[in-house]
Design a protein around this nucleic acid. Structure first.
Lengths: 206, 206
DNA sequence: TGGAGCAGAATCCTATAGGATTCTGCGGCG
DNA sequence: CGCCGCAGAATCCTATAGGATTCTGCTCCA
């Protein structure tokens, strides 16, 4: 079949989802055989997927002793993550305001209706990640976007604290408005305000 | 034997060196079998190493069609890279000036002797990378340091243009002086001046 | 009681084999 | 002359097997 996706890629996504869903506890061992049995594939693609996840910083390898998931972000690392996000994402938003973005679609968030359980939270996280990625792309600097992507900010934040809806959508709208009106410093400020508010929202729960 | 390094890691470093040395041309195909024969290992660890290199952005995978090295940076991407470096490394230098760094060793560059051979250039690149990494570490934000590392800036620059010694050592000394005297804005400026000068030096040769 | 030592089991690491897919060169046709 | 289709070869992807290393639990001794 003209399947354009390889088994290694599917395993990669599956294991990433397992980590995100807390199906694998933070700091727990990830045995290759266990994953291969659970997903009913051979160890080879699992090994390949774990190698990539290690580069992503989601698991760590100890030679001859297997992989373990990275522990949750400490409060200090949480602050460090947002410090880097402020650096990169504010710059991307400011750049986006100088670009032609009339045809760009900035995804909206799902309505923060009453708790839909885990699935709802996961969908919210995914939509928020999509919005931030859209801003990064609109910045027009692919290397900057890659640097933002490799932070895996949403994944790490999701692991420690399921996002609260709050006023996120309004903050997003303010960012989009500043970008579309061609106001770089306004976009920078709006993104900064949004990230600092999000940081405070999540910080409350730790 | 208590060998603390696994074959996959050695292959990873070996292939990275091959790319850096232009032993594998930019944009050329990297066949798993060829690498495994050349290094005299089985394809499995090669596959694992290439998966990691793909996460690093040094090779790209096309499903069912193998890996190819990433092409050289275009002039546009070169500018984008330095834009991100300015964002991250200036912030790291400024942070370093607020930290206790009396015991930190900032590596010096090798004397820019008339050695025009490849080994000399490679040593210069390695020493320059070590200096910039030391500044990133001194910044005290491990996540910021990781973001800088993942840019693989020195590797990409080395591929397109062997570094010219120039006045690099003097610029480095200015950065160290600002950091040690606890002057964040001075460190930021010094790093900015250094990166912009380096950018211009390399830009001349493209 | 607490720590060192050892045997068994589990796991990892590497090598090899077989089916599926893609790439390449050549001939035929418009 | 240029484009399409096809067969052979090369390559990739996955599965399985065997040797090497680490982890675990128990026993023994100070």
């Amino acid at each position: 079949m003209g399947n354009r996706t390889t088994l290694s890629d599917e395993v990669y996504e599956a294991v990433k989802a397992l980590i995100m869903d807390h199906a694998i506890a933070p700091g727990a061992r990830v045995t290759i055989d266990a994953v291969s049995r659970q997903l009913d594939v051979s160890p080879t693609p699992v090994r390949e997927a774990l190698a990539r996840l290690e580069s992503d910083g989601l698991v760590v390898k100890r030679p001859m002793a297997g992989y373990t998931t990275t522990p949750l972000l400490t409060p200090g690392e949480f602050e460090q993550l947002f410090e880097v996000r402020l650096l990169l994402e504010c710059a991307a938003a400011a750049r986006a305001a100088t670009q032609e973005t009339s045809g760009v679609d900035f995804p909206r968030l799902p309505r923060p209706v009453a708790d839909r359980g885990y699935a709802g939270h996961a969908a919210f996280t995914a939509a928020d990640a999509a919005f931030h990625d859209a801003v990064a792309v609109a910045g027009g600097n692919p290397l900057l976007r890659d640097a933002i992507t490799r932070l895996h900010a949403h994944l790490h934040v999701h692991r420690i604290s399921f996002p609260g809806a709050g006023t996120t959508e309004a903050e997003h709208a303010a960012i989009v408005a500043a970008i579309r009106s061609g106001d770089p410093s306004g976009a920078d400020s709006a993104m900064r305000a949004h990230l600092e508010a999000a940081r405070d929202r999540h910080r409350l729960r730790t």
